[in-house]
């Protein structure tokens, strides 16, 4: 494989023809792929979804998924390179061949499975609301109660319980997430939905009282609560799982790469068995969000 030269190394193997055509225009090299060579892959993450993945002040990518991904790559005996990529262009960019795998707290959902494949899940954590402690919403009912969206009766009861408190409020959510689907499906006529490019942006707006609540996975809110100023927030409302929230987060892979999916599945299975995922989860999340066996 060939390493791209220049400011932004491209680590795919590409063909000479494309290099000749493109390098004339802009310098950094581009080279065509020997398809199906998995000895070296590029994994994309967002770098803005702590503690799954984030940027250290020196610009390096760090986090649970970086540690886990490197561990999985070692198990598969392949070399992996990480690149940072915006969330909302993640799936189109995967399919456009900008990288080979996504590890970005991305939940396995039926909708996403239409366009890409996933490995088996490597984490599973429920979805809930975050509000300011000073907000009237801090007393939302059903706080901490587990509600599976697969259970129709329980889902209806939970939505009915929180509807009066949420009526007319503005809820922030990251665009193109399962949490957005939850709001859009069950609470569309109750709350005003405001979408953000990153979860950290809705945290900023929640702190400045622009929105009344944010919705995301509890594993993400761990980092929010642990940051400076995190003590002004509190998690409220039911802990939603299942249904349109999916079965947990998996590695996103192009449909044309079933071999890579199989490789990841085997590595994740092994990492689950020997307790690696659990250990990394405790290290980064202070709680065990490894998926059930």
């Amino acid at each position: 494989m060939t390493r791209g030269r220049g400011f932004f190394p491209i680590i795919r193997s590409w063909s000479i023809a494309a290099v000749a055509a493109l390098a004339v225009l802009a310098g950094p090299a581009a080279v065509p792929a020997l398809a199906k060579d998995y000895s070296h892959i590029v994994i994309a993450t967002e770098g803005a979804y702590p503690p799954y993945n984030m940027h250290a002040p020196d610009g390096k990518l760090i986090g649970f998924e970086i540690d886990l991904g490197n561990n999985l790559c070692a198990r598969m005996h392949i070399t992996c390179t990480w690149i940072a990529q915006d969330w909302d262009s993640m799936i189109p960019a995967l399919n456009a061949g900008k990288f080979d795998a996504i590890m970005d707290g991305m939940s396995v959902t039926p909708q996403r499975l239409k366009v890409i494949d996933f490995s088996i899940p490597y984490t599973q954590s429920p979805t809930t609301f975050l509000v300011l402690k000073s907000s009237p919403l801090a007393k939302m009912p059903d706080t901490g109660k587990r509600v599976s969206l697969d259970d129709d009766a329980a889902m209806k009861a939970a939505i009915a319980a929180i509807t009066p408190a949420l009526k007319g409020k503005t809820v922030g959510v990251q665009v193109a997430t399962i949490q957005y689907n939850l709001l859009h499906t069950y609470l569309r006529n109750v709350v005003t939905i405001r979408t953000y490019k990153t979860t950290e942006e809705h945290d900023l707006d929640l702190a400045s009282d622009r929105i009344d609540a944010a919705i995301a996975s509890t594993s993400y809110f761990v980092s929010t609560l642990n940051k400076p100023g995190g003590n002004q927030f509190v998690e409220v409302g039911p802990l939603f799982t299942g249904g349109l929230l999916g079965k947990g987060t998996g590695v996103g892979i192009r449909k044309s790469d079933p071999e890579l999916v199989a490789m990841f599945n085997q590595a994740i299975e092994a990492a689950k068995k020997d307790g690696t995922i659990r250990a990394l989860s405790l290290k980064w999340f202070k709680t065990d969000i490894s998926p059930p066996n």
């Binding site: 262009s89 799936i91 189109p92 909708q111 922030g172 665009v175 193109a176 490019k197």
Partner: peptide, 22 residues
């Protein structure tokens, strides 16, 4: 659209994130 407003470009983002047809 980058500060949450759903004008033409904001809506375009939203459609793409559902259909992935940029």
């Amino acid at each position: 659209s980058l500060v949450t407003l759903m004008e033409v470009t904001g809506i375009a983002y939203a459609i793409i994130s559902e259909t992935y047809r940029a």
